[in-house]
Design a protein around this nucleic acid. Structure first.
Lengths: 203, 203
DNA sequence: GTCTATAAATGGATAGAC
DNA sequence: GTCTATCCATTTATAGAC
């Protein structure tokens, strides 16, 4: 599956990220990593002495992923909806596959048991994601592509909750619920306009 | 805090539910329960031999809570929005307080590690919640109180994702994000109408 | 960087006395 | 229904050899 090309540290992070998204930070162990990588627990401890070290590395990895995907989305040749679509339905959807949730959602759920260091980064990642959404919403509203009511900030909050929730629910109830949620989000953003034809039907 | 009036079994369930909402099913132990209740682990095992037994009891408790609150909401003397408001902003918001998430959201996050028995009930609870939302949305649309676009089912999915997400985010980022999300949900449901005055401003 | 070995603590669980 | 005592597996973590 994975073309053994990265160094061990990156291999561990890649696998740990996957386990974070499927089981949660508390619910995967050094033993899980050791088994799947074919090295001992002690070796993992060599790269990440304490689990919190691994946790912080995971947060940093998520941060890099975010920055990379925000940049790719911004570079999309198209409107705000195209950019948002790329981020949600290509970028996020791809790292989640059929059985994983957004890594940030996973951290949210484990909040009460996470070390303080991880909480701080997690909060920052949340804020950055909301700012990115707000940026796209502003762009879409300015261009006339979007027609939602209410403040940009409140709408950004709504968007994030919807697509993260859709990923969580689709893991349990299958693809259709994700499709439903995304289609409804589309309608919601476009406001008065039609979903497909963009043909304004002003009463 | 808790007026020692219920039997042990109920005391355990009450506390376990709280721990489920704060830490997640995998991340609280018989030891946690034992410590806070002042009885030994062995005593807890007497009431719930295996943890899955406790888990199933928790699911059943959530189910009873749901049925009770759905009934109370339906009995509200008012429109669909009042009923929805009761369920979300009174019932759910109260059991979550400032530091807890919706118990069903907690189970969602732990999905990969939960025993099959719990998954089955969890799915059923999800479906029932979506049906309840759909019922309120239908009522509101019929009465003209709501003006959202798209199918009832898709909109129900959206609502659930929004209020559950709002509870998760507010635990991390404080009340304001919850208020923002709820206000935006309100606007979204009323559609063309104004949020407060209900004065139709049909262009 | 990886291993063996091992420690110390925790978690789920059971047996049997009171 | 609650306790003491105990078991076994797992988890995080460290020491030290190769």
């Amino acid at each position: 599956m994975q073309v053994r090309m990265k160094n061990r540290k990156d291999q561990i992070i890649t696998l740990a990220l996957e386990l974070l998204q499927t089981r949660g930070f508390d619910s995967f162990s050094y033993q899980d990593l050791s088994r799947e990588l074919g090295i001992t627990k002690a070796s993992i401890h060599h790269h990440f002495p304490k689990k919190v070290d691994l946790g912080v590395a995971l947060c940093e990895s998520i941060k890099r992923w975010h920055d990379r995907e925000y940049a790719k989305a911004r570079a999309i040749d198209g409107g705000a909806l195209d950019k948002m679509n790329y981020y949600i339905n290509t970028a996020l959807r791809t790292v989640c596959g059929i059985d994983k949730i957004c890594p940030l959602s996973s951290l949210h759920a484990d909040m009460a048991t996470l070390p303080e260091e991880m909480i701080r980064v997690m909060k920052k990642l949340d804020v950055e994601e909301l700012e990115f959404m707000a940026e796209l919403l502003q762009e879409g509203r300015d261009s006339g592509e979007f027609n939602f009511k209410g403040s940009i900030e409140a709408q950004a909050v709504l968007c994030v909750m919807i697509y993260k929730g859709a990923l969580q629910y689709s893991r349990i109830h299958g693809d259709q619920i994700y499709i439903d949620a995304m289609q409804q989000l589309n309608i919601l953003l476009r406001g008065e306009q039609e979903a497909q034809g963009k043909s304004a039907r002003s009463a």
